[in-house]
Amino acid sequence: MNGLDARMRAAHEVGDGPALVALYQEAAETAQSDMACGFFLTHAFVHALESGDARADDLKARLRGMGRI
């Protein structure tokens, strides 16, 4: 996972919302199952929502397309 775990932990540590959005999106791209993908996109979406990040809309649309929201 290319140190993704470590980067996520670091971003959580400092509460870097925009970074978390990107990192969870990255995790979603390489997820092994539909459920795992939905799981990571959900986190990307929540962090985008919380930080007022414009990516929230796309993430929401994507989750909706998957029947997950």
């Binding site: 795992a36 993908c37 939905g38 990571f40 959900t42 979406f45 989750l63 997950r68 929201i69």
Partner: peptide, 8 residues
């Protein structure tokens, strides 16, 4: 995750 993992 209110409807299970990844199900919101």
């Amino acid at each position: 995750h209110v409807g299970g993992p990844g199900m919101n």
